[in-house]
Structure formats: structure tokens, C-alpha cells
Amino acid sequence: MDVAVIWNNLPYLAMGLAVTLQTAALVIVAGSVFGLALGLLRSVGPRPLRVAAMLYIEFIRGTPLLVVLFIIYFAVPALIGFRFTAYTAAVIGFVAFIGAYIAEDCRSGLASVPKGQAEAGLASGLTRGQVMRLIILPQAIRRMLPALFGQFVRLVKFTSVASVIGVTELTGAALTVNAREFRPLEIIIFLGFAYFVLCLLLSQLGRWLNRRYAIPQ
């Protein structure tokens, strides 16, 4: 074991980590918005949109992430005659992918709010939109928190796959360092440790938020 190889390449690895963090943050925000919209369409949208959302969700959930990335990076450009950079393709792919899973969590979150709540809201004169916005969604989102953070942790791990289409995030940076130094064991263990810490911090944050905002039973 030679830890110096990590120390010497720390600036480069840190740059990779920064790309990973930036990607994760971007996709967490965009993916949540997309997933929530998709989940709403799937649950309460007009019928054709509901079917379209269902088909999309099932298609994505049946497809490996790597294949989704390949489709967006290699196949879609062939169709539309415009090529994304690897980074853009990765971000679009992650959002498209995680959005489908978040949509499913969103759907079960919405379904978990007792029907009586919506009925009571309608009976007291709120419009359907108001019932959704003021009564259902705030409760559904609080119930969704654990599942949502589960998806975020998955997402952080998924960002490593971007290295396959050539994005120099943490994994890509580590592979580059390894190609130069050839100390695979040290570098891969460091890489694993970095993701481990990242995922653990994120799930701790999720637990804390859940404790704070969980609906008292």
C-alpha cells in the first residue's frame, strides 16, 4: 500500500469530486422536479397523459442506466443530428432515469394520503387545485422523504457511470490517475471510500430531515 499516490494526486481527484458533487446536485434538483411532475401526471393527469406517463415510467424502469446513457449520447444524436457533450448527455440521462423512479415514489406518496382529507377539503369549498397544493402535496412530500433520499443516494452512486461515456467525474478522474500511476488497489479503495462517505452523509441528512418533518402518528 502506498498512500502517497492519493496525496500526490489529490488536487486532480478533488476536481473529479467537484464534478460529481455538481452533477449530483443538479440532477437531484432537476430530477425531483421532473419526477414530481411526472408522478402528478401519472396519478391525476388527464387520461392520455396518464397513459403516456405510465409508458415512459415503465420503459425507463425496465432499461439499464448505462443503456439510457448510450441512447442519449449515441442514439438520439443520430436521430436529431445534434450531438450533446458527454456531460450534458449524462445529466439529461440521469434526470430522465431517476425521474421515472421518483415519479413512482411520488405516486405512492400521493396514494398514502387518506381519501378523507381530499373529501374534507373539497367539502369545505377548496378547488381541486387548492386541495392538491395545500392539503395533499405537503403531506405526500413529507411521507416521501425516506424514499426520495433513497433515490438520491442511488443517484450519487449512479453518477459514476458517467465515466463510461467520458465524463471526468470522481471515477473518471481516479481511472485517469490509475492510468498514469498504476496503483489500482490504493486508488480504487480511495474511490470506494469517497463514495461511501458521500452516500452516508446524504442518507444521514435524509434521516435528519425525516425526523424533523415526519408526520407524527
Binding site: K157, S160, V164, T171, I189, L191, G192, Y195, C199
Partner: peptide, 19 residues
């Protein structure tokens, strides 16, 4: 906790490159 908080790709590289 160790196994599931590390990306699968890193697991693969661990066996393929690391070892």
C-alpha cells in the same frame, strides 16, 4: 453499509483493476 454505499461500477473495478 460498506457494500451498498459504494457504486457497483467501483465494485467491478475493485475486482478487475484493484485486484
Amino acid at each position: 453499509e460498506t457494500a451498498r454505499n459504494v457504486p457497483l461500477l467501483v465494485h467491478i473495478y475493485f475486482w478487475y483493476l484493484g485486484l
